[in-house]
């Protein structure tokens, strides 16, 4: 007879994100499953993840850079130099955020079949979604770095570290909001619409398409400060600083105090949202099994 030495414990009371860390082998398998199912080992599928952002980039570049005249040229001396790289470095980060949050928000409902039958740390699903998006981010990063090198990229160590920080900020934010909306979505299935709206706003409420100086000029100091509280703004600026700035003559100004003040602030905001997401998730997860 197998006599357990363990104590009596309440089942179904998880340890939150810490538990995800303890079950990281399962996390790895869930991520791998997601990738395998999506690509089914097909080269075309993998290629697709390069083609899609590439096309998006070209369309924006031509429409905004050439037609609207944001690209710096002899005829448009006020435009941004290497606008293509400026745009792309922001877009890859926004793509990551959009995919991560969109998939994380649907992850609980999509895995409902499993969640209502077997107990496992449910935070695994939103976290796995964000992780999968990070894997998809990689080919875009490859294209970005390729374009940067072509344009004479010479980043400093600090600049690369800033990009890493920016990525972490956006990843934490996506995880926090993903936990929040993933849980709410179980109760209100149309909250996905709200997420879609949020994603659209996120793209335009950060300096992806335009330069931050335009915002500062139009909004004035107070509202520009508010604008900078958006962690995505800081993330995108860190990417500009790491990828775009070192391909130019470096004369473009950074938003003031980006590294010393705004990066830490953004990290705190993201961590705060992660905490709110986790707390909401834990409040709601007790009834996932019966609501799904």
């Amino acid at each position: 007879m197998s006599v357990s030495t363990e104590e009596l414990a309440r089942p179904g009371v998880g340890g939150g994100l810490a538990e995800v860390f303890r079950t990281r082998f399962l996390l790895k398998l869930l991520v791998r499953k997601e990738l395998k199912v999506r690509y089914r080992g097909s080269v075309l599928g993998l290629l697709w993840s390069y083609v899609k952002p590439g096309v998006q980039f070209i369309v924006f570049y031509i429409a905004l850079g050439v037609f609207l005249g944001l690209e710096n040229s002899p005829r448009n001396p006020g435009g941004l130099p290497n606008y293509a790289i400026y745009l792309f470095s922001g877009i890859v980060l926004i793509n990551f955020f959009n995919e991560a949050l969109g998939n994380a928000s649907r992850s609980i409902v999509n895995n409902g079949g499993l969640i209502k039958k077997i107990y496992l740390p449910r935070e695994l699903f939103p976290v796995a979604s964000v992780w999968v998006s990070a894997v998809h981010f990689f080919p875009q990063l490859v294209i970005l770095v390729g374009a940067c090198l072509y344009a004479g990229w010479h980043p400093s160590f600090l600049q690369l570290a800033a990009a890493l920080g920016g990525f972490a900020i956006v990843g934490l934010l996506a995880t926090g909001l993903g936990l929040l909306f993933g849980a709410v979505n179980v109760y209100f299935r149309d909250s996905e619409n709200f997420v879609d709206m949020l994603l659209m706003v996120a793209t335009w409420a950060s300096p992806v398409m335009y330069a931050w100086t335009m915002v500062a000029d139009k909004l004035g100091e107070f509202w520009f400060t508010v604008y900078q509280f958006n962690p995505i703004t800081v993330g995108v600026e860190s990417f500009h600083y790491a990828f775009w700035l070192p391909t130019t003559d470096g004369s473009a100004p950074l938003p003031p105090n980006l590294l010393s003040v705004w990066m830490p602030v953004a990290l705190l905001v993201s961590a705060g949202i992660l905490l709110i997401g986790q707390l909401t998730f834990r409040r709601l997860e007790g009834r996932f099994a019966q609501e799904l």
């Binding site: 309440r10 089942p11 179904g12 009371v13 077997i118 107990y119 009834r287 099994a289």
Partner: peptide
């Protein structure tokens, strides 16, 4: 199994 948690009372 812990898939559901009770409204009140305890399971261990």
């Amino acid at each position: 199994s812990g898939v559901m948690v009770p409204d009140n009372g305890t399971v261990r």
